[in-house]
Design a protein around this nucleic acid. Structure first.
Lengths: 133, 133
DNA sequence: CCGTATCCCATCCGATACTG
DNA sequence: CAGTATCGGATGGGATACGG
């Protein structure tokens, strides 16, 4: 049994996200995509039902949340727990792998949030430098 | 002088990426977007010229690289150094803030790359569970 | 070499309606 | 409650051509 990395190495392709053909690029996009990052971040706080998640991720539509959760579940980052009751109850939570990913994602998110004043100041400098009149 | 966070607090809005109105959501999308993440990752290795970057970020078009670099420069994460020579020479590099952001981004990227076999295995389980025939 | 401008298509995504 | 189905507009993004 060889790993995916080893199979790529045989073709002399770099096995990393900078290579168009590497599957990690797709997974990274699920994780960092517009709704993927926010969904993982919300689930970092605990286990939630579908509509609870919708309220936590401000602005996400039913369609996109559903799509996002499916992609993350398929990648093994989110676990879906459906109870066959009526009305149905479904809970979503991070898998151990998903939690490790999200720890690193949250480090990034919180850093960006904390430095927004720097970013906003940079924008003003940039804009005023090229639209003086 | 108040910070952006304080102004949001006055409106009793959470100042974080989960709130639709918070500007940090837009910046996070620049950082984690399809080409933003890869461009920052490439610049983490050093200073590069436009076409050097294009080769490092496999698959990016001129248009998207240009657009991505502008957004990151505007947010104060990338510095553009143009030398008025002929032919022109332009170098891009991370700012100190950009470097701090990218450190956290690279932690995420490298973790995902290293766990791709787990992700791929999860996908096979997911797919075979719902398309048996 | 370092881009910008234009065209055009694919996909993303929100709104709405409907099902179990 | 927890979704799926469908539609149409907005956006993303590649190809090409052109300008400094």
């Amino acid at each position: 049994m060889t790993t995916a990395q080893e199979r790529f190495a045989e073709q002399e392709l770099p096995y990393n996200v900078f290579s168009k053909a590497c599957p990690s690029r797709g997974t990274l996009e699920h994780v960092t995509g517009r709704w993927g990052a926010l969904t993982l971040g919300a689930l970092y706080e605990g286990s939630f039902r579908f509509n609870e998640l919708r309220r936590r991720v401000d602005g996400v539509s039913e369609k996109m949340l559903s799509q996002t959760l499916h992609a993350l579940e398929r990648d093994g980052l989110v676990h879906r727990e459906a109870q066959p009751t009526n009305p149905p109850r479904v809970d979503y939570e991070l898998t151990p792998l998903g939690r490790e990913v999200t720890e690193r994602l949250m480090s990034l998110i919180q850093f960006v949030e904390g430095r927004m004043d720097d970013v906003l100041a940079a924008r003003e400098r940039y804009d005023s430098a090229r639209a003086p009149r």
